[in-house]
Simulated assay, not measured.
Amino acid sequence: MAPPSRREDLVEAALRLFLRDGFHATGIAAILDEAGLTKMTLYHHFKSKEELIVAALELRDRRFRDWLFGRVQAMGGTPRAQVLNIFEALGEWFRGEAQIGNDGPEAFCGCPFVKASAEYADQADPIHRVASDHKRRIVETLGEMCHKAELPEPERLARRLVLLKEGAIADATIAGDSLAAAEAKLMAVRML
C-alpha cells in the first residue's frame, strides 16, 4: 500500500480538527500544525480553506456511509431487520464505539454535515451542497433498503426514517442522550 500523500495528510488533519472544533473555528495554522505541513503545501493542493473543507466533507461522507451501511449489513438479519439496524449502528456512534475513520473508535461530537450546513447556510455554497448531498445519499440508500425489504412506499418511508435518525442525532448532540437511537428505533418499529 502506498504511503498517504501530502494532500491526504492535509485532508485527514483538517477533518479531525473540523470534527472536533468546527469549520470556522479551525484555522489554517492549526491544520498545518496538525498535518506537519507548510502553507505552501496547502495552497499547492487547495486554493482556499473552503476547498479543503469540501475535500474533508467528501472524505467524511464516504467513510460515514461505508461505516453505517457496512455495520447495518454486518449486524445481519432480514432486509426489514437491516433497515432497523440503522438505529443500532447510530447507538454505537453515540456511545463512541464507531470506527468511522482510520484512528480507531471516535468520540461522538454530532453530525459534521449539519454543522457545516449551519456554518455555510447559503444553499448555493459548495460546502452546504456537500452536506446536502450526504443527507440525500443516506435517504436514497435507505430507500433502496426499504424497497428490498418490500416495505410500502419505500422512498417516503426512507425519508421518515431519516427524520427519526436526524432527530436522534440532534438529541444525542444537544442532550448527550446515548439512548436516543434506541428510542428512535422504537418509533421506527411502529412505522414498519
Rank of each mutant, 00 (worst) to 15 (best):
R137E: 02
A168Y: 15
G76L: 03
G104S: 12
F64T: 04
A182T: 07
K115W: 00
S178V: 13
L68G: 01
L17T: 01
I138E: 00
K49F: 06
L161Y: 15
G96I: 02
A98M: 13
D133Y: 00
P4K: 02
L17D: 05
G167L: 15
K47R: 12
E51F: 14
M145N: 11
P154Q: 05
D21Y: 11
I174Q: 09
A170Q: 14
A124P: 00
A30M: 11
I127Q: 06
L57I: 10
C109T: 12
T141A: 08
E153N: 08
E144W: 08
R7C: 07
W93Y: 14
M75D: 14
A175Q: 13
H147Y: 07
S132M: 09
Y43R: 00
A81P: 10
F108K: 05
A35D: 02
A158W: 10
K47G: 01
E150R: 09
W93L: 06
R190H: 02
A2Q: 09
V114E: 04
T26W: 05
H128E: 06
M1W: 02
C111V: 11
V130T: 13
A116R: 03
M145I: 01
D171R: 15
E106K: 03
I86W: 06
E88Q: 12
T141E: 10
E150D: 14
A118Y: 03
I100G: 12
D171L: 15
D21M: 01
A2M: 02
A175W: 06
R156T: 10
L68N: 05
H45N: 13
V11E: 06
A2N: 04
R190V: 04
S117T: 04
C146Y: 12
D9A: 05
T41Y: 03
A158R: 08
A29R: 14
F23A: 01
A182L: 09
G96Y: 12
A13D: 00
A116N: 07
F23K: 02
R190T: 05
A56K: 00
P112S: 08
E51A: 12
K39C: 06
I169F: 14
E51P: 13
M1D: 00
A2H: 08
N85I: 14
D122F: 09
L161S: 09
L157K: 13
A56N: 04
D9R: 05
N102Q: 10
V139E: 04
F23D: 02
T41P: 08
G176W: 11
Y120P: 10
A14R: 07
K115V: 02
N102H: 11
A149G: 07
T173L: 15
G76E: 04
P152L: 15
G70C: 01
T26S: 04
F46N: 09
F64Q: 12
E50G: 02
T78E: 06
H24T: 11
L192K: 00
F87R: 10
H24S: 04
A107Y: 00
H24K: 07
